[in-house]
Computed example of a mutant assay.
Amino acid sequence: MSVGPDLPVLFRRLHPDVEPPVYAHPGDAGADLRCREAFTLAPGERRLVGTGLAIALPDGYAAFVHPRSGLAARSGVTVVNAPGTVDAGYRGEIRVCLLNTDPRQPVAFAAGDRIAQLVVQQVSRVRFVAADELPDSVRGFGGHGSTGGTSGG
């Protein structure tokens, strides 16, 4: 079932051989981002990796750079600041801060390898209003780990 027409997002190739973000399958939320040059991540190393692309998002939208689940599962490579945020007004190169979490194995990438996913979402601007007290909620003050989730708590 189609929700409506695709949102047009202008992109610019900053390097001639760079491919635009592409959805691997119909219905995918994230479009694959590729690296523009070959590199190797040593165990525990992080690196800011260029995609060779710049985009122009419409006002009211942002793009979020997420790790690729297969890359994380196979090689332990993730996005350090996941998700990275690309604001509507940013026109520079989309770069991805990758981290090799494997303690022993380096991971090699060739130019054009898929390194992350780009998810574009509509976002709201808000006006923060100071208050002496906040209204009650079901969750209340429960924070990190307050709902359990492991056999230990």
Rank of each mutant, 00 (worst) to 15 (best):
M1I: 13
V3Q: 11
G4P: 08
P5S: 10
P8W: 09
V9W: 01
L10S: 09
L10P: 04
H15K: 11
H15A: 15
D17Q: 12
E19K: 07
P20S: 05
P21V: 01
P21E: 02
Y23I: 10
A24K: 00
H25C: 07
A29Q: 06
R34A: 13
E37R: 13
A38V: 04
A42H: 09
A42T: 07
P43L: 02
P43M: 05
E45S: 07
R47I: 13
L48A: 04
G50D: 10
T51V: 06
L53D: 14
A54T: 00
I55H: 03
L57F: 00
L57V: 00
D59W: 01
G60Q: 05
A62M: 15
A63K: 04
F64N: 04
F64W: 12
P67Y: 02
G70K: 10
G70N: 12
L71V: 02
R74S: 14
S75L: 05
S75D: 14
G76E: 03
V77E: 06
V77K: 01
V80Q: 03
V80H: 05
A82M: 01
A82Q: 01
P83Y: 15
G84P: 06
T85D: 08
V86A: 05
V86S: 02
G89S: 03
Y90W: 04
R91W: 00
G92Y: 01
I94S: 13
R95T: 15
R95V: 12
L99P: 06
L99D: 11
D102Y: 00
Q105P: 04
P106T: 10
P106M: 10
A108I: 05
F109I: 08
A111M: 13
R114T: 10
V120G: 11
V120W: 05
Q122W: 08
V123E: 05
V123K: 03
R125D: 12
F128D: 14
V129A: 09
D132L: 11
D136M: 07
S137C: 08
V138P: 02
V138D: 14
V138R: 15
G140M: 01
G140W: 03
G143H: 09
G149I: 12
G149N: 13
S151F: 08
